[in-house]
Each structure stands twice: as C-alpha cells, then as structure tokens.
Design a protein around this nucleic acid. Structure first.
Lengths: 149, 149
DNA sequence: TATTGTTATACTCTATAACTATA
DNA sequence: TATAGTTATAGAGTATAACAATA
C-alpha cells in the first residue's frame, strides 16, 4: 500500500505540472483549455444539453454556462432551445468550431508529442502503453455520473 | 507519427481532467494545489530564493510572490533576507509547514490511490510502471531551466 | 546598469447561493 | 413543486508591464 501511495503522489505531481505547462501561452491557440475540452465533447457527442456538457466535463452548471457562452459568442457552437422542453438548450458544434478545434488540438498535441519524442525508447513505450489506463482512470472519478464520450 | 499524436491527444485530455478533479473541493485540505506544490519544493530543496522557487515550479516571479505570501502568512514557511545579497530572500519550510504538507499530500494521494485501486490489474500495472516516465516528461518541458528536486 | 523581487492589473477557471423560466 | 439554466459573487492561479531596492 505504501508503494501505491508513493506512485499516486508522483502521478499527482506530474499531471499537475504537465497541465500547468499545457495551459501556458506557448501555443498559437484561439481556444482556452476549458473551451477546447467542452467543444470537443459537444463535437463528439452530437447535440447536447447544457447539463450534459457539465456532467461530461465534470464541472458544475454555472461553469458550463460560462464556457458555453464564450463558444457561442465566437460562433464555435450553435445554441437553440430544445423544441421538446423550453427549459433546455441544444448545443451543436459549427463547421467553424470544428475546424478551429482541430487546429488547436493539433497545436497542443504536437507540442506534447514533441516532448514525448525526447523521452528514451523505454520511457516512451511505457508512457504510450499506459495512456489507455490513464484515460480509464479519469472515467471512474467518483463525481462524474455521465459516461464520457 | 499519427499514433504519437493520437497518444499525445489522449494524454493531454486525461491529465487535464485528472488535475481538474484533484483540485476540487473533495479534500479536507488546508493547502491549495499551488501552495502544496511550492511548499514541497521548498521543503525538499532546503532554503531557496524566490526566483529558484519560480524556476522549479515553472511559474513566473509574480506568481511565486503570491504563493509564497500565502505560505508565509499561515506560518508554513519562513522568509528571511539573504545576508549575502539584500535583494534576495531565503525561504525555508517550518515544522508546522512540514507536518501540514504531509497531511495534505496524504489526503490527495489517498484519494488518487483509491481511484487507481479500482483499475484492472493490467491497467494498474501499466499506469504504475509509466509513472517514472511521466515524471521525466515533466522534467524536460522546455521552459523549465532549473533541475527539479 | 543589471538583477531580484513586488505591485498593479487583468484574464481563465471554477465554485456556491440565489434567481428566472418552464414543466 | 421540481428542473434547467443563468446571474451574482468570490476565490485560486496565472500572466505581462511597471516599479523599487540592491548590487
């Protein structure tokens, strides 16, 4: 159990630092991290209600409202009332949003891929084969009720 | 190269989400994430100047000033002028800071270890053996001049 | 003049509590 | 009355630009 805890500690620190760097201003990116993440969720999962975006992103409704407002303001998603329930809204990625998303994802992914390329062969292999496990780890986090993607 | 880019994309998303969850209010933590990270850096690396903290944390001096001010205000680190250069300050973790750091790290690490424990054996194995690689990845991020720990 | 750290300011990201509109 | 989303407010975390003090 000590070893698990030690591994958790190193993992915690590493993901924290990596995220901090991924957020930084070293990218020619239009979209912020939270916008990019939400846009991707909307683009991959068809028309979604605001609450569904919040659930899938693991954020609270007011936070979703703000991210959505930014995406709508720049024309990256469309926002129409749900004809079946006037309280709800339907969010869909626009073509402009789709292409911007792909550009921005590519910029950030290339930066990270370049970092990965500098690792030793063994490290790179270990890391890439652990990626699916890491993805599943984020899927079992307790507070996320909705199934991701 | 397509595969590396794909892996980078999934890694990017996963670390972003995991950090978001680690930051959340599900912990009985005194220290914020940035305070915990900076305190750990100071505790592990003896007396440090403010600029060294900024470099090791990968943040800019004004950000370091703020984090340091919070830690000093709560008595978790001491802050004295460097006798050899009046422009610099020397930061040292106090006993109170050390014990608080250990408590908070443990709380967050246990939360994460519990999540890891829910993975399949194969996933858990892949993840734990990739942790050193992930740590090294954060060490080669371009903008970090100082060597970590 | 160069370096170290701080102050002023602003922006992103998130949360809780209170509110509005619809069901 | 219950639900979906928004508004108001606050706090963490970061940055750039301008400044003060010391070397």
């Amino acid at each position: 159990m000590i070893n698990q805890l030690e591994a958790a500690g190193q993992l915690r620190l590493a993901v924290y630092r990596l995220t901090r760097q991924l957020r930084g201003p070293q990218f020619s990116a239009e979209l912020t991290m939270s916008q990019l993440s939400a846009l991707r969720t909307i683009a991959h999962n068809g028309p979604l209600h605001a609450g569904e975006v919040a659930d899938r992103e693991g954020i609270k409704p007011p936070s979703a409202t703000r991210v959505i407002a930014g995406l709508v303001a720049e024309g990256f998603i469309s926002r129409v009332p749900d004809p079946r329930d006037g309280r709800q809204i339907l969010l869909t990625a626009t073509p402009k949003g789709m292409s911007q998303m792909e550009r921005d994802m590519r910029a950030r992914d290339e930066w990270l891929a370049q970092l990965i390329a500098e690792l030793s062969d063994a490290d790179r292999e270990a890391l890439t084969s652990a990626v699916p496990a890491l993805v599943r780890l984020t899927e079992i986090a307790p507070q996320r009720a909705a199934e991701p993607d």
